[in-house]
Design a protein around this nucleic acid. Sequence first.
DNA 1: ACGCGAGTGCTCAAATTTGACTACAAATTT
DNA 2: AAATTTGTAGTCAAATTTGAGCACTCGCGT
Lengths: 176, 176
Amino acid sequence: MTSTRILILGVLLDGPLHGYKVRRRLELWGADSWASVAYGSIYHGLAKMADEGLLEVVEGGRGGKTVYAITDDGRAEFYHRLFRAWMDISPIVDPFQVAMTFMDRMPQAELLRAMQARSEQLRLTISMMERSLGGKQGFGAPRHIDENLKLITGQLRAQLDWLDETIPKVKAGDLP
Amino acid sequence: MTSTRILILGVLLDGPLHGYKVRRRLELWGADSWASVAYGSIYHGLAKMADEGLLEVVEGGRGGKTVYAITDDGRAEFYHRLFRAWMDISPIVDPFQVAMTFMDRMPQAELLRAMQARSEQLRLTISMMERSLGGKQGFGAPRHIDENLKLITGQLRAQLDWLDETIPKVKAGDLP
DNA sequence: ACGCGAGTGCTCAAATTTGACTACAAATTT
DNA sequence: AAATTTGTAGTCAAATTTGAGCACTCGCGT
């Protein structure tokens, strides 16, 4: 997503790092489960932002690791984006929503099977996430990262509730 | 998102259309609020999929409108993607989640203001969405599209609950 | 002292997304 | 009837994302 930039800037706030370390840090924070930043995007983002003066190359270059540091412009950009992200209520884009849109294209029996399977799967995922709460406290990940997990499970639970509410309607033929 | 393809295929399921009509249909379904398909992506997607044999050009070309129809391969692709989307529990990617990650970078007072403002804003958005339930029944949009709205409001409500639960913790200094 | 798997660190081409901008037609204003 | 707005239809360059693959290092078992 476009969260790439803010994530990179945020990671560099604490000190210069090279691409791989940035990725590691994000993984430590569990960012792979609530953002989705591909390897390449990090390197692209670093290079691009260096170009724009938000970062500067501190060390290396030619072949070896390239270490980037955040500049004052970068800090300003970070806070600007952070503020925007807090204010904007952007639609949550979820492939599942898209699937729902086409619920009327599936035979009822198959639809029901899919819904039930998803409901099961959600229960598992949620309890797995809840069990992992506090698990990352060990090394480097700040405590408030858990809040992220909590918010996600809350949202998944909302999806689960919707499913459990809607399955009977489909059974009864009220939907789709 | 990568939902572009499934959305386009899904729209064409009912008959051949040209790019602009596809966009219109998606807007009618309110897709702009739960997916995010930019104009250009539609035209790109159409051309690409035609290239791959999932669609075929039915009419026009050179300058005027180009009408696309779904092929059998396209239908197969659609159902395949639909199935995957029902099964996968992919992380919901939300810029707000990203902002949360950096809650420890904001001065407490500002953080609180932001949280409260967002909470307010969410309440408004939710009640607005709830009022618009059933509003699109009028023309062409299938009834089950409302379910989409319901799921979204559920998820927003989960976010609201999280905020209302977390604000006191921040006030008390337990977080971040 | 050699091979091999795991970890580190990055590159690159291809795919996709973005949204400002063009162009013309129909409807509305003035 | 000219002028302006709104709607229809699409193009294009630039930005970004994706993920397979490359190159190197290090520890470890044989």
